[in-house]
Amino acid sequence: MTSYYQQVYDLVRSIPEGKVVTYGQIAKLIDRPRYARQVGYALAALPAGHDVPWHRVVNARGEISRRAVSDYEDYQQILLEDEGVEFELNGRIDLKSYQWVPDANH
């Protein structure tokens, strides 16, 4: 059986460049609809040298969530902008434009 964290990582790896998903969306897609916070814990626990595009995960308002490490929010925004994701003046991403909705096979 695949661990919860591994399920999160596998799904995040499938997010196309230039798209984002929310923590809650990931939780629902792996059949744990009330585990959005745990998705954040899984991403925070990524080991060095990983290949998981964690920066493509944002909160339900289309915002970058605060991190314990300072300046990581800016780094995440730079990574997303490099992929063509645009931020509104209020710092949000228009989820209608950039949110990835996978097909049934992810």
Rank of each mutant, 00 (worst) to 15 (best):
R37D: 05
F87G: 05
V58Y: 00
A45W: 03
L29H: 02
S3I: 08
M1R: 13
Y23M: 05
R92A: 15
N59G: 06
R66Y: 13
Y98E: 03
I30D: 04
I78G: 03
Q76F: 04
V101K: 14
I93K: 09
Y41D: 10
E86L: 14
R92W: 02
H50M: 07
N105P: 00
V20A: 02
D31S: 11
A104K: 08
A68K: 12
E81A: 15
G91I: 06
Q38H: 13
R67P: 00
L11D: 02
G49E: 03
W100Y: 12
S14E: 02
Q99H: 12
Y5V: 02
H50F: 05
P53D: 06
Q99G: 06
R56K: 10
M1T: 12
Y5N: 15
T2K: 12
Q77S: 14
A68Y: 09
E73D: 11
A44I: 06
A104R: 08
A27M: 02
I15T: 01
G62L: 10
R66P: 05
Y41S: 07
Y72N: 09
T22Q: 08
V39K: 01
S14V: 01
V69D: 12
E63C: 11
T2W: 04
Q25H: 10
E88I: 00
R92D: 04
Y98G: 04
Y23F: 09
K19L: 09
K96D: 15
V20W: 08
G24Y: 01
V39W: 04
T2I: 11
Y23R: 01
A27K: 01
N105G: 03
V58L: 02
D71A: 13
R13W: 05
H50R: 10
D10W: 05
I26H: 04
Y72L: 13
I30H: 06
W100I: 06
G62C: 05
Y35R: 09
S65H: 09
S97D: 08
Q6F: 09
G24R: 04
D74C: 08
